[in-house]
Design a protein around this nucleic acid. Structure first.
Lengths: 225, 225
DNA sequence: ACGGGTGCTGTGAGGACGCTGAGAGGGCGC
DNA sequence: GCGCCCTCTCAGCGTCCTCACAGCACCCGT
């Protein structure tokens, strides 16, 4: 079993290398995001342990880039923060598990083994809410049998909503995820794009899956409307 | 066990003949590509040891011609070069193993025995999407009954698309796989080559199998358009 | 009923994106 | 050494996407 550890704190990295090595894993180390990404792409690992705070390229970006490259190696994220949002962010970007520093080595080992048992899935499952489906790999969206053409922005927005079905998502949260973490433009874009989406995935089918939660944002009906 | 050695360096050829003969093989020699091809086609060998640098017809061509003729005798290629590309080229063209000169005789013998244990494989599967087929071994592409001539680059691109049918493949992913992991040139090449491909595999047949996914890359219709 | 706040949408500008033709450069076979 | 083919760059063009803006609609509290 080959494991890549991407961690800039040298002491921790070495400790993991020794510890996991003793468990019979082959452990490679990378100390910044760029090296980590390259190694992960080329090394054919069974799992990657990925710190979030990294020089050059954050763990988020590394994970995102991996997934975009079609690499679905199991990723276990490490973070010094413990905010709910960080965790959600990590999992959104395709991490498979998440551990907050400081963590117990035994827990890490258990989680790692769990990940390896699951193995690398070929591709993420199709996202769905009722008869509304979205496939991130083929980039196709369907309402029942009917395919729906979406622009890139509409697609990311719907994808984000589908990853949090039934949850009320504030405009600012939507902005940071679908647009950019430090988006400076008019927050009205969200309304605009929700409008576009409704015209494509709801109106033609007489549905109402994208609900407005006045004062709180938007919610996707988990049964697809 | 009959083995054909195609090698223009007479000393090496004779050495192999003596050595393998002592191991109990029946060894025939050819000293250029054309003779080698004829012998291989007619002689019903259990394996062929094939130098790449040959007079009249290169080892690549010999191997390719063999495969095109439906002959899947195990081929062990010999080469003075050791570039990764050469190796990939050889294996692409249907060689079964590859050895770089200078090589140890013991290693050659081991590899040869491994090949013989495996035996002549059946023809590898062709890639297909609808009536569009691509055979990685013979490097032939057909739309229905019609054969289509592709350049090497066009071929690799189509092969990559066919290996991920229906999936939206980003330009960067295509670049790293079809071109090079650290390709530095203009990403526009992808558009250019998709254009070439469309003119060859789609336009003459009134098809649209290579779909543009705006903002996300390209997708090959899994039913071939 | 009225008004403020919140959300919706039509319009249009600007830009990003993708497609294509022309052509330069290089490798390979002859 | 010559010519052909392949690869890739570049620039121009058309199309589609994104977003800002402004006015209107709607909700809700008073």
């Amino acid at each position: 079993m080959r494991v890549l550890v991407v961690e800039d704190e040298v002491r921790l990295a070495r400790a993991l290398q020794r510890g996991l090595g003793a468990e019979g894993f082959t452990v490679d180390l990378a100390h910044d995001g760029r090296d980590g990404l390259h190694l992960a792409l080329e090394g054919d690992y069974d799992a990657v342990i990925l710190d979030i705070m990294l020089p050059l390229l954050s763990g988020y970006r590394v994970c995102q880039a991996l997934r975009e490259a079609g690499n679905w190696v199991p990723v276990l994220m490490l973070s010094a923060k413990d905010g709910e949002h960080d965790q959600a962010d990590g999992l959104d970007l395709g991490a498979d598990d998440y551990l907050t520093k400081p963590f117990s080595y035994v827990v890490l080992l258990a989680r790692l083994r769990a990940l390896l048992r699951r193995g690398a899935p070929d591709r993420p499952a199709v996202l769905a809410a009722g008869d509304l489906t979205l496939d991130p790999a083929t980039r196709r969206v369907h309402r029942g049998e009917t395919e729906i053409a979406l622009t890139p922005r509409e697609f990311s927005l719907l994808e984000f909503l589908l990853r949090h079905p039934g949850e009320a998502l504030s405009k600012s949260r939507i902005l940071t995820h679908v647009w950019d973490a430090n988006y400076e433009g008019d927050p009205n874009v969200v309304e605009v794009y929700v409008g576009y989406l409704r015209r494509k995935v709801d109106a033609p089918f007489g549905r109402r899956s994208l609900e407005t939660v006045r004062g709180a944002g938007y919610r996707l009906a988990s049964d697809g409307g």
